[in-house]
Amino acid sequence: MSEYYLVDVKSITCHVPRSQFQADELDMLAQSILTTKGLLLPLLLKQTAINSFEVLAGDRQYYAAVRAMEINPRAAEMVNAFIIPMGLENAALDQFNHLSMGDATPLQSSTSPTVSSDLEQRLIQLESLVQSAFIQLQTAQTLNTQRLERQIIQSNLPKPNPLTMFNSAPIPDLIHQLTQATRLGAKVKKVVEDLDIARQQSPFTSYSDLVNRVSGLGEKSVLKIIDAWMGTD
């Protein structure tokens, strides 16, 4: 398997002389390697000993990596590379050449009659690219909106405070809730009326206050109502 590694630049050698490449171009690439913290098109290397390698493909990238190490020895001590196992060198080179040709050829090599169809082809590809990117964006956006809405709803929901509810809930609601939650039965109406009178005199300051001032309402009932409101039941 061709494995992807970080390889010490110093352990790599190259048969192509450095003078074949323009110094300012290597400089520019080196800066880019330092900025992006890596070579974006990894070298292909052949392992010649346990800690030495030879460039199979990517001579220019290699010298750019060397230049980057010269500029910043610590940050660019290593370079990303594929280490190609023995026997696979030619297959790897084939793939490498095809991949790098794909970048450069279509426009340069095509002659006028095919230009339009080439262009058309590219337009179609571009269109589908844009379309799929758009769909991706759309899905992402929908997901985000949903997530945000959920968060907003969650954060805006007032924390239910049973005491406030006792103090402020309208009478019909209270009657409904007490009937549901307690076993007061027919007494509910009377209890709620008492409660309403009591809270009009002054709001309840605590649950014990509530139990003390509303005669028909026992501790157990209050607990049951709170449980029902808080959804802990």
């Binding site: 992807y4 590694y5 970080l6 390889v7 010490d8 352990s11 346990i50 800690n51 390698f53 290593m78 590379a81 280490i83």
Partner: peptide, 12 residues
């Protein structure tokens, strides 16, 4: 583990 020579450094 991504560094090809990481197993050798201490030795060297």
């Amino acid at each position: 583990t991504r560094i090809a020579a990481s197993r050798l450094r201490l030795l060297f």
